[in-house]
Amino acid sequence: MSKRFKSILTPIIAVLLGIIVGTIIMLVSGYNPVAAFTALWNGAFGEVYYLGEVVRQFTPYILAGLAVAFAFRVGLFNIGVEGQFLVGWLAAVWVGVAFDLPRVIHLPLAILAAIVAGALWAFIPGLLKARFRVHEVIVTIMMNYVALHVSNYLIRNVITNHGDNSGPIHKSATLRSPWLESITDYSRLHWGILLAIISCFIMWFLLERTTRGFELRSVGFNQHAAQYAGMNVNKNIILSMVISGAFAGLAGAMEGLGTFEYAAVKGGFSGVGFDGIAVALLGGNTALGVFFSAILFGVLKVGALNMPLEAGVPNELVDIIIALIVFFVASSYFIRVFLDRISKKEVK
């Protein structure tokens, strides 16, 4: 078995194990797994409306996944995607409600604001890591909560006068289009999916085809070797966090300018940032892998909403399956040992 084949097989086995354990949980709790998975399938592909919602759902997943994956490739764990996503969302909506410009200027400006906000939010942990060697995991977790509370504060006190909702953005800043809505039976599908696909390409090109990308990957493989080879490790660490945050901020723009077209005070996290970790892990931290695993998670999440209606199974079952998939991918050591055993037997 070649190494490449194994690296593709491992996530597939993890997904299968996740689904098997999910099925067992349903059987134990007295639900009908066949009905549940049929409902999930119908809820994702049964109608063109659902299909539109699936695409709408996996658009931010792709970007959040890219954000986590990009940092991972440089050896950093950006748990702060959620926070960068929230500030991106807020910045996009802020520009969306505050200005009144022609669409060709307004929409790009709002998207840019989200990217810059996310990048700046990620710059802080990057700088602290490079300058003070502070572990980025803890700082980004803390920054998530700071982002949550600060953006709630800004919505309440700056954007509105003690309101809980920013109100809808101007039509000139929206990512939605009447055409996309009409072909998908008025789902919330928007043009963001194009940006997400372009972002996948950017990540691949940047990492695999440029000198800068080579440096970033070198730092990820071995900081000391990279340093010895004359690369500026600190600069690359900061840069990778900034790019990662930019992807996360863009993911926020997808929600702010596409799905919801407003920003509201939140009691807790949206979960997109944490799902992004799952997406990146399952996708093996590559652009193409992220794309496909985001589709899988988008299908699961949107399809799950149909499960309580059609099969009477709580949609949280899908959250359990996603968590299990993360578990099995993380513990892929035992899957690999198992695969090694099999391939050794074949040789004999």
């Binding site: 709790s29 949280e316 299990l324 035992f334």
Partner: peptide, 27 residues
Amino acid sequence: VAAITFRADHTVSGVAINLLATGLTLF
């Protein structure tokens, strides 16, 4: 088991614990 025996990344396994706990309890 994940972080010690299966040598999973501790942070990733912790994230999975959080996701699993919320999903499982609400289920």
